[in-house]
């Protein structure tokens, strides 16, 4: 029996998100025999055809065999009902056994509605995926990573298994050099009667990486002392092309937006490098960042719990250390470029 594995390709700031390629790789992880990996992509009708062409190329290179597209003004930005309508149509057309989306703002919102519509199961925020016989086995964190569970799910063409994957966790399959068969299928869209309208999208993040996808995170805690105190962290992050995060302490103190909060409340992140500046390391914060590959702690207090889990620790004043680090990284990166 051959199955269709459907992934969703998400566009953000005129790029396909990394997690969309990870979704294709996750499908490749469980692919068997004659299974086919296909992807769907939605965009506004004003989208530049050259950009869509580029998206298609990138997806084919990562392992997608066929791309389904839906273009409509309703789909220009995320709209829960419009995107549901489009996705529902793809699912009934393609009849996939499995649907893979990123566990992003979009995937979190769309996945459960789709699952409900198809009376299907869903596993959310998955960090690993395997096929064992008839079953798909997914690993996912509990308590923001303080524990880990493996759950099993089965899908069928009428009741697909829905899986949202956590960014930065599924390793990418090597990019293929094959001449892609340009198999792009445009599907129609029937506008539903919308019960809600998106009046406005206030872009506060243009160009900035989302924390969940950042490879390097520079994070500040109470030790940052004020909103202005984040400035040296911003500079370090910018040199490293990373993102700035924060502890609950810093957010509660009003130094920064709750959108930056990392922890069991807030975001869970798994970057390559996590630099904790002036963060003591409360359990609920550690839950949100302990799976980072390399953890660096900078804190005045040598007894701070963060040092117990950090790979490298510097006992010192972050306002002295962080600018020195920024300079040292800048030197290294310039040498590498030269």
């Amino acid at each position: 029996m051959s199955r269709t594995l459907l992934t969703y390709a998400e566009i953000r700031h005129h790029q396909l998100r990394q997690v969309s390629f990870e979704a294709v790789s996750a499908a490749a992880h469980i692919v068997q025999d004659q299974d086919q990996i296909v992807t769907c992509l939605f965009y506004g009708s004003a989208e530049d055809p050259a950009e869509v062409e580029r998206y298609a190329k990138e997806l084919f290179a990562h392992g997608t065999k066929r791309l389904y597209t839906i273009a409509h003004t309703d789909l220009e930005t995320y709209h829960a009902e419009a995107y549901f309508q489009a996705f529902h149509h793809v699912v009934t057309t393609v009849q996939p056994h499995v649907i893979l989306l990123g566990h992003t703002a979009l995937g979190r919102d769309l996945g459960p509605r789709l699952a409900s519509a198809f009376q299907a199961g869903q596993l959310s925020d998955v960090t690993d995926i395997q096929q064992q016989g008839e079953h798909i086995i997914c690993t996912r964190p509990l308590y923001a990573g303080k524990a880990v569970e493996k759950r099993t799910i089965q899908g069928s063409p009428t009741r697909p298994a829905i899986i949202t994957i956590r960014p930065n966790n599924i390793p990418l399959q090597p990019v293929q050099d094959t001449t892609p068969s340009r198999d792009v299928v445009a599907l129609p869209y029937t506008p539903p009667t919308l019960r809600s309208i998106v009046r406005e999208v206030v872009r506060k993040t243009s160009g900035k990486l989302d924390l969940s996808e950042a490879k390097i995170i520079v994070s500040g805690g109470r030790g940052v002392k004020s909103a202005e105190g984040f400035q040296p962290l911003e500079e370090l992050a910018s040199v490293l092309q990373g993102a700035v995060g924060a502890s609950r302490g810093a957010c509660d103190a009003g130094y920064c937006d709750y959108g930056l909060q990392i922890g069991q409340t807030g975001k869970v992140v798994t970057p390559e490098i996590y630099i904790a500046c002036g963060i003591s390391g409360a359990i609920q914060h550690l839950a949100g960042m302990s799976s980072s590959r390399v953890i660096i702690a900078i804190n005045k207090d040598p007894e701070a719990p963060i040092f117990k889990i950090a790979d490298y620790g510097i006992v010192g004043d972050l306002f002295e250390v962080v600018p020195l680090l920024t300079a040292a990284f800048r030197d290294l990166l310039q040498k590498q470029q030269a």
């Binding site: 199961g121 596993l123 086995i137 524990a147 880990v148 953890i295 117990k308 490298y312 006992v315």
Partner: peptide, 21 residues
């Protein structure tokens, strides 16, 4: 009927303290 079920529950590997520079 449940659509998903748990096979296994475990704790993540503990992180060790590293190097203090």
């Amino acid at each position: 009927a449940a659509r998903t079920s748990r096979l296994e529950l475990s704790l993540p590997p503990a992180r060790q303290a590293g190097i203090l520079l």
